[in-house]
Simulated assay, not measured.
Amino acid sequence: MHNFRNLNVWQKSVDLAVKVYFTTKEFPSEEKYGIVSQMRRASVSVPSNIAEGSAKSSKKVFCNSLETSLGESYELETQLEISKRVGLISEKDSELLENDLVEIQRMINGLKSKIASQS
């Protein structure tokens, strides 16, 4: 069992979720129940699944939670790309969020490998 608050990947993914909230606040109001809702949900799910998995006593279950977290991050990456292509987010803002997201994805994969090797 890990203290999720001490995991750098959890801290960075919470920071990213906050950035997504502030960024999507600027999206048009008609997107509130569309891509805004989806992006916020996916961004919150990344650290939430890390936290949930860290509470499990089984390393396999923790790895499964990290897999889910990784899947949510790819979902968010797709939503960022769509937002950029339809002009809801600037190229610069998209790039900043994507850079954070790629770093988080690497960190999730690294943590998953570390946990799996401890089995």
Rank of each mutant, 00 (worst) to 15 (best):
E67K: 11
R106D: 11
L76K: 12
P47W: 06
F22T: 14
L97M: 07
V102Y: 07
T68D: 10
K32W: 09
L7K: 10
L16K: 14
E81H: 09
V9M: 01
S13F: 10
S48V: 12
S29Q: 15
K59I: 04
Q11A: 02
S117I: 01
L97K: 07
N49V: 05
K12W: 09
S48C: 11
D93T: 05
T24D: 11
L88C: 05
Y21A: 12
E67S: 15
G87Y: 01
V46Y: 01
G34S: 04
A55L: 05
I89Y: 01
D100N: 15
N3V: 12
P28K: 06
S113I: 02
I89D: 02
K19I: 11
E30L: 06
L80F: 14
I82M: 07
Q38N: 01
V102K: 14
E52V: 04
F22W: 13
L76I: 13
G34W: 06
N3P: 08
N6G: 14
P47A: 05
S83K: 12
S43D: 15
D93G: 01
E77L: 12
E98P: 00
F4T: 12
N3T: 15
Y21T: 04
A51F: 02
S54N: 03
M39N: 14
S90I: 03
M107S: 09
A17P: 07
E98C: 02
R85F: 02
E98N: 08
D100S: 14
N3D: 15
V61T: 10
N99M: 11
S94F: 04
V61Q: 04
C63D: 03
N49H: 10
Q11N: 08
E67P: 00
S54Y: 02
L96F: 06
T23G: 09
N49D: 11
A17I: 07
Q105E: 12
G87H: 05
K112V: 03
S113T: 04
A116Q: 09
Y21E: 12
L80R: 01
F62S: 01
L16Q: 11
K32L: 13
E31D: 13
E26A: 15
Y21F: 15
G34L: 12
S54F: 05
N109G: 03
D15Y: 06
Q118N: 06
D93W: 03
K25T: 13
W10D: 08
N6P: 02
T24F: 08
S54Q: 09
R40E: 15
E81T: 10
D93E: 06
S65N: 13
K112L: 05
M107Y: 02
E103K: 02
L7M: 09
S117Y: 02
I50N: 00
I35G: 01
S117A: 07
S83I: 07
G34V: 10
S37T: 09
I50Q: 00
E95L: 08
W10T: 07
N8F: 04
S83A: 15
A116Y: 01
V36I: 14
L70I: 05
N109V: 04
A55I: 08
S45L: 12
E67M: 09
